[in-house]
Amino acid sequence: MSTQPDLLYSEEEEALRAAVRDMLGDHCDAAGVLARAETDAPHDPELWKTLAEGMGLAGLLVPEELGGQGATHREAAVVLEELGRAVAPVPYLTSAVVATEALLECGDETLLGRLASGRTVGVLAVALHVAPGAGHPAVRQVDGRLSGELTGIADAAAADVLLVPAQDGGLYAVDARAATVTAQTSLDLTRPVATVTLDGTEGRRIGEAAPAVRRALRAAAGLLAAEQLGLADWALTETVGYLKERKQFNRQVGGFQALKHRLAQSWLEVVHLRAAARNAADTLAQGGDDAEAELAVAVAQAYAGPVAVRAAEEALQLHGGIGMTWEHPVHLYLKRAKADSIAYGTPGAHRAAVAELVGLQAP
């Protein structure tokens, strides 16, 4: 067992948060995100360049000797909190966390260095809904050439390299330009999904798929809770601010007792989510026992999805008529919350995982 975790933010983490929040305030305003959401290219390459190359955040999980920052999942979680608060349309989770974790398991130093620089975006070609440890489709492989179709791949349109599981048990690196990437209808306008089709496409085997995918999805699910925390915290903060300004019958709407109760309940849920998300990030950062990390991640995801969705729903409802308009960004947060709630496993799947990990029998 690990020592008692310290879930408080360190000075370095608070400084990182402030830097990322300032940068997003300058480069990721709600109007810009909304404008991109209406196009066929929702990703923001300039924002990604600033985040990844300018601030060096794409390589947080990559060791320094490979060109990364040598930080931990705690720092990556802080970044994801802020990206969640801004519903930033960048492939940070998919490239700097998921693909990076898969490459760390495989030990591919060349690709790790490229992803750490931020000049290359990597995407693991496993559907966004797949939970850690669950089965997933794989493509056929004959003489190093891959053929097959994979659906629901998040941020595939932004990828430079795809990490593709094959039926021979290997994980292959594929130049994204050699694959056919077809956009799918996505609820979350800021994290689009696509179908990846390979037809005799050349791939380079970089390692075993099973352990790499399992490690990548476990980190993804654990750090996704940080993104959901940032989203829920934004929704609560914006709603409180709006209700302090909005008046009805010459009284501040926020002074109505029924609304106070709803806000208090939302605040409690966000506080509990912060503890669960921080514990998942801290446990992943410690390394060590896989079962302990799996439990921390499953607990966080069992709780995070419903809380983020409720916070976004409350924000939309309590903003009244303005909350129902396209011009107000709250709908982006609700869509991201809904999409996140089934990403890397549903809350139900994670509750079942918790029960199995602690030996709790079903009634």
Rank of each mutant, 00 (worst) to 15 (best):
A41E: 13
S266M: 14
R310Q: 13
V307W: 02
R145T: 15
E238S: 04
R336Q: 15
Y303G: 03
G32Q: 04
L318V: 00
Q265F: 01
P347E: 10
D40V: 10
D160A: 05
R191C: 12
A18F: 04
R205Q: 15
V193K: 11
A276R: 13
A352W: 00
A308T: 06
G56P: 02
A308F: 02
V253R: 09
I153D: 02
G144K: 02
G144L: 01
A15R: 07
A102K: 12
A131S: 12
V330R: 01
R215E: 15
V253Q: 06
S186V: 12
L224H: 05
A235I: 01
A96V: 09
L273A: 10
H43E: 14
R36A: 11
D22E: 15
H43P: 14
R114W: 01
A41N: 09
L150R: 06
F256R: 14
L187Q: 07
L332Q: 02
E327R: 13
P45G: 08
A298Q: 03
G56I: 00
A176F: 05
K338M: 12
A276D: 12
D199Y: 00
A166V: 08
R114S: 14
E314Y: 03
A18S: 13
L24R: 06
Q317L: 13
L47G: 10
R246C: 01
G107R: 06
Y303N: 06
V213R: 09
A77M: 09
W48C: 12
L259W: 11
G25M: 07
V161Y: 08
R17H: 13
L187F: 02
G118P: 03
L273M: 09
L112Q: 01
P165I: 06
T185F: 10
E208R: 15
A315Q: 09
V358T: 14
A275Q: 14
Y172F: 14
V358H: 04
G59I: 06
Y242L: 09
A176V: 03
A349L: 06
P165F: 07
A337H: 07
G32Y: 01
A337T: 05
V121E: 00
L162I: 07
M23D: 11
H272S: 13
P211R: 08
A337K: 12
A285F: 02
A362L: 14
E46I: 01
L115H: 04
G144A: 01
